[in-house]
């Protein structure tokens, strides 16, 4: 089926009308949701949508899981059965889901300043609502935003992008259709230092091509960072505005408290 759809046509457009290096629309919603999560974020890259809630730092449910010098991070992922075109239930014991949560945990462990919260636990719950390629990328970006929204101190943003290679031309931010057909790489960068926190690739690709797409994805991560930063600033501005309007209504006493 997929062989009939052109991944990159002669005019340089992809199947969804994007150019080679064009990213999908990113939309970010940082408004609080649900039952008192400390931070939450819903992020979508095109049609891929994930929602993340962060609880904590709080007391760990199990004493055995605590560390005396740092916080423990717990990541749990739920993939909605309706998220992909074929209805499929993935349990929590699924190897792929386990690997994904392990990857996210290992990615965020050195980024979160865990040593500030000894003997506590930070829970990250991820719900995948729609899948259209770039699942890991969306999970990483949404988790970063939810952690920031929860006010948990991080060393830096973590911004992830998928890249693929179609014969010799590199593409960025793949959809599911492209992801199934092309060798693809997911790179997560920390924009302040330019270091990479995560690299995964699962399909065959020549070493020289890898270098090209790896560097390109690193650059694209910085673009994503711009978007994420803008969303965080907007949300903070909204909160500040809300606080100020409350302060005005209640008179000067409230202002004096701060």
């Amino acid at each position: 089926m997929s062989s009939r759809i052109e991944i990159l046509n002669a005019g340089g457009y992809r199947s969804d009308g994007r150019r080679q290096y064009e990213l999908r629309t990113i939309s970010i919603d940082l408004s609080p949701r649900g039952s008192g999560a400390d931070g939450s974020a819903t992020l979508s890259h095109g049609l891929t949508q994930v929602s993340v809630c962060v609880f904590g730092p709080r007391e760990a449910k199990m004493r055995s899981q605590t560390f005396h010098d740092r916080a423990n991070i717990n990541v749990e992922i739920g993939i909605a059965a309706f998220s992909s075109s074929e209805r499929r239930k993935r349990g929590r014991g699924d190897k792929r889901v386990l690997e994904l949560s392990h990857t996210l945990k290992a990615t965020f462990e050195p980024v979160i300043q865990t040593s500030l919260y000894p003997r506590s636990q930070i829970d990250i719950y991820i719900q995948v609502l729609q899948q259209d390629g770039g699942l890991l990328q969306a999970c990483v970006n949404a988790t970063t935003l939810a952690l920031i929204n929860a006010g948990i101190p991080l060393y830096d943003f973590v911004c992830a992008v998928t890249g693929g290679v179609h014969s010799t031309s590199p593409l960025l931010d793949l959809t599911l259709l492209e992801e199934n057909d092309l060798p693809n790489v997911t790179v997560a960068v920390m924009p302040r230092t330019g270091k990479v926190a995560l690299v995964t690739m699962e399909t065959r690709l020549h070493v020289d091509r890898f270098e090209e797409i790896f560097r390109l994805a690193g650059e694209a991560g910085k673009v994503i960072h711009g978007e994420m930063k803008r969303a965080v600033k907007e949300r903070t501005q909204d909160l500040v505005n809300a606080m100020q309007s409350v302060g005005k209504a209640a008179g000067t006493e409230v202002v004096d408290e701060y």
Binding site: P110, M190, A197, L198, V199, M201
Partner: peptide, 29 residues
């Protein structure tokens, strides 16, 4: 994971301490 024909099959750095991009490419070499 790669073969003798210089084709990478799997690259996996799932988290851990962040690395400089050039270091990753050196490791691949």
């Amino acid at each position: 994971a790669l073969n003798a024909q210089r084709e990478l099959c799997v690259v996996q750095k799932s988290g851990g301490v962040p690395l400089v991009p050039d270091d990753v490419l050196k490791i691949v070499d």
